[in-house]
Nucleic acid binder design. Structure first.
Lengths: 202, 202
DNA sequence: GTCTATAAGCTGATAGAC
DNA sequence: GTCTATCAGCTTATAGAC
């Protein structure tokens, strides 16, 4: 009855600990020792599961990308109106935040500033960028916007802005307590409105 | 005739080299050796000018903050119209970029993800955040906007968004080649327009 | 067979002595 | 300016517990 599961989640605990520490303190600043201690895993076990720290970092980024994509899928599945589907980007971020608690902005952008270009985790950064661009272009097109490319660029600007505000708020406590995500969504909705009603806008 | 200047710019060369390397490769990933080599300075000389790497990092951030502030001052001095003065934020970034070439987004935000909260350079990150907020509130107020706080938050969202787009573009080459800064300025100008003409907006 | 505990080697960076 | 001590972080090896 009180038996441990047949496959003890050593790898799982490593990924969880790595996710928390890498995101909270930065990748370079987080030592392997800290991850091992938090996960309660011995070095030998870790190196049996991952080739090294770089591989652990890559797995951390891959898992984060996967969860973000699933969250967005989930929100999209609840939306029918084409404009709502386009704006679902912001709702998905809100849900991801409430679920995983990413109070320090975009993990992929943070990783991009820390990792060299040939790091094994780098493909995940590009995957994130590509997913955002492609989906937004599709959704904008489906919403009947004249220039999907333009729409994607505008929404990405607001999306990146909101995430960056979170990152800045994390470093400077005294900031005004408004919600950047709600603001970004409002601005996006207003902009989409101008695109739908006035074909000459731009 | 070929005499070196009376005050050889050892400290200056160090700050220049540090600025280039820290910004391009990240602070944690850049070793002191690399800075010394690029500056052509010996370790002893460096430790005579700076207590250690942390102090060098703090000086790098301080200098960057100072130059950014001066650039914005410069642009502001050329603007008379209150709305132009409010939008000068984006023109100042453009000028700073063309002058210092910051192709990888906001150095302070990047530093914020890399440095621990008790790092000696941390006050500069807060100084940057404070300068942005205070100035924008003042300029928004002078421009006659109803809610300067709201205006500052909106412009900061767009400002952070543009800088974040630069950072993302640096990691993923295949992105569309539009100018996020021009887009942010356009969106800001349009939003300000709604605030001036329609007092009930929000 | 999988995981833990401990310890030691290696690399490179920081710091300081000469 | 050179050269070396010191230290931290990553990795691997050994030995034992469930």
């Amino acid at each position: 009855m009180t038996r441990a599961p047949a496959t003890p989640p050593a790898r799982e605990r490593l990924l969880t600990a790595a996710g928390e520490l890498f995101y909270a303190s930065g990748i370079a600043a987080t030592g392997v020792d800290a991850v091992l201690t938090r996960a309660g895993v011995s070095p030998a076990t870790m190196y049996a599961h991952f080739a090294g720290k770089d591989a652990l970092v890559a797995a951390y980024l891959g898992r984060r990308h996967e969860r973000w994509r699933l969250t967005w899928d989930e929100v999209l599945a609840e939306r029918d109106d084409p404009v709502d589907r386009l704006l679902s980007l912001f709702d998905a971020v809100a849900r991801y935040r409430s679920r995983e608690g990413n109070g320090r902005g975009c993990a992929f952008l943070a990783a991009a500033t820390e990792l060299p270009a040939d790091h094994p985790g780098h493909p995940w950064l590009e995957a994130d960028t590509r997913l955002l661009g492609e989906r937004l272009r599709e959704l904008a097109s489906a919403a009947g916007l004249l220039d999907p490319e333009e729409a994607a660029a505008t929404l990405l600007l607001l999306y990146d802005g909101a995430l960056n505000r979170f990152a800045r708020a994390a470093t400077t406590p005294g900031l005004p307590g408004d919600d950047p995500l709600a603001r970004a969504r409002r601005l996006a909705a207003a902009w989409i409105g101008t695109q739908l009603s006035d074909p000459r806008a731009g």
